[in-house]
Amino acid sequence: MSILNKFRGKSLWMLHYCTGCGAIEMPPVMTSRYDMERFGIIPMATPRQADILLITGYLAVKTLKRVIRTYEQMHSPKWVVGFGACTVNGGMYWDSYATIKKLELYLPVDLYIAGCMPRPEAIMDAFIELRKGISSGKYEGWKKYIENYDWYKKNQAKLFDVKKWSVNYE
C-alpha cells in the first residue's frame, strides 16, 4: 500500500487543538509567510475529516478527555503531533497538578516539535518530516493505539482516577 501512503503523505488535513499558547504560532504557518497549503496541509473543522491531530501546548486533565474523544472520532490512518515542550515532558508546567506531563502515555504521538515555543520554521520542518515519514510508512501511531489499546486505556483511567475509562457513548 505504499502508493496510497504517498497520497496520504501529500494531503494532510489538520485539526489543531489549540488549548495552549502555541496556537499563536499557527497563523504565520497557515498564511502567506510560510503557507503550509503548498504541502497540502489545510485546517479542517471537524475530527471526522481530519488526518492530523495537532496538540499545541499543555493539556489539562479535563481537556485531555476531550482530546481523546476527538482522537477516537477521527478516521484511520491518523497521526498525532505534539507541539511544544509541554507535550513532551510538561515544559514549564512540569510541576503543575492540573496538566499532563507526557502526552504519549495517553495518545500515540507520532512526532514531537520541541521548543517553548517552536518557531514557524520548526513547525514547517516537522510537517515536512511528517510528510516524508507518512509516505514511507514510518509513522503508524494509529496502529499502535489499536494494538496497545488496553495499555492506553489503563493510563488514561489512572490519570482520571477511575477504575475504567472509555469514551463511553452509551
Partner: peptide
C-alpha cells in the same frame, strides 16, 4: 455504526 452521542460536539459528550 455509531450512535447519536458519537457526533462532533467539539469533544464534549
Amino acid at each position: 455504526w455509531v450512535n447519536d452521542k458519537n457526533t462532533f460536539t467539539a469533544g464534549e459528550v
